[in-house]
Nucleic acid binder design. Structure first.
Length: 304
DNA sequence: ACATATTCCTGGGGGC
DNA sequence: TGCCCCCAGGAATATG
């Protein structure tokens, strides 16, 4: 799943591949679903003949600047955006192909079709996706004060849920939240209201460290992720908890556990991440049972 | 107002 | 071997 390090790797590799400066000479929309705004006709007309002037990123959004427009791309789960030779085999689920003036193509492929594009008049276009308009600070810019305020607003929310909220911090997804909480030695189910300022500080440091290391390794590839030149990342080799259920913790040797937090598969070390700020539901759900977390009828009284 | 469930979508994998 | 069902999850939307 492309998260911040993956999207940034795509951005850098597209730049390294020489996308900036190229002119779009033809647009083929092969599956209209991925054009989210405006209409397909206006989308094609707005890109036709335009030169790419810069490539930016905010959170998990890729911002392809084309003269008087910004093409906003989100890869979601399985999206790939890469520079391709025109005669390269056309992979299935290729939904958008931009022909460039140097003969190459910028292709978008997305098996699940969750990803898509918004062509905007500018950065303040009200048609921008809600997620982009409400995006919080980048992880390397978020302050401890901001984290503390967010925790105060969501006292009863599991910290994992807070970090996945793009309005709080931009760019984190399931992989890097699990990895950061392990490094910070905080149990993912810990409620935000019970985090100490030291916990929050360790989380802030862990976020920066894990994202930096992931970026240095060009992102994490399990199946789908490829960079702007079609190459996979390498950070999966260095993950400490994500998708390591049952394998020894790289810090203490304890088997990594898997459970469900904030609706997501969640990996953690029961020894390194002993939470105490949450209802004692530490039973790792075996992945083979379809155990919906039995609705815990609350006994806790409203705090306020 | 806040927290959680559902929805979208498809390929892959487990179970039998 | 083959089928069936579950599972993955980002973000919008619906429900509690």
């Amino acid at each position: 799943m492309p998260e911040l390090p993956e999207v940034e790797t795509v951005r850098r590799t597209l730049i390294e591949g020489g996308l900036v400066g190229r002119r779009i000479v033809h647009i083929a929309v092969l599956h209209g679903d991925v054009v989210r705004h405006p209409s397909i006709g206006a989308f094609v007309a707005g890109l036709q003949g335009k030169r790419l002037t810069d490539i930016g990123r905010r959170g998990k959004y890729l911002l392809l600047e084309v003269e008087d427009r910004v093409l906003v791309a989100h890869l979601r789960m399985t999206g790939r955006l890469w520079l391709s030779a025109p005669d390269a085999e056309k992979l299935s689920h290729t939904h958008l192909v931009l022909d460039l003036d140097d003969g190459r193509q910028l292709r978008f492929r997305d098996v699940r079709r969750f990803g898509g594009f918004h062509l905007l008049e500018g950065p303040d276009d009200p048609a921008a996706p809600q997620g982009l308009r409400e995006l919080g600070p980048e992880p390397d810019a978020v302050t401890l004060k901001q984290l503390a305020a967010a925790c105060a607003r969501h006292e009863r929310l599991a910290v994992k849920g807070l970090l996945l909220d793009q309005r709080v911090v931009a760019g984190l997804g399931n992989i890097y939240v699990d990895e950061a909480l392990h490094r910070a030695r905080v149990h993912p189910r810990t409620t935000c209201g019970s985090l100490s300022s030291k916990d929050r500080a360790r989380i802030a440091v862990a976020l920066r460290e894990v994202l930096q290391e992931a970026l240095a390794n060009r992102g994490t590839t399990f199946l789908d992720f490829r960079d702007g030149s079609g190459e996979p990342g390498a950070f999966q080799e260095f993950l400490r908890v994500y998708r390591r259920e049952g394998l020894p913790c790289r810090t203490c040797g304890e088997p990594i556990a898997k459970t469900r937090v904030a609706g997501r598969g969640t990996h953690y070390c029961p020894n390194c991440q002993k939470g105490d700020g949450f209802l004692s539901n530490t039973a790792p759900t075996s992945t083979k049972t379809r155990s919906r977390p039995a609705k815990t009828s609350n006994a806790s009284k409203p705090a306020r």
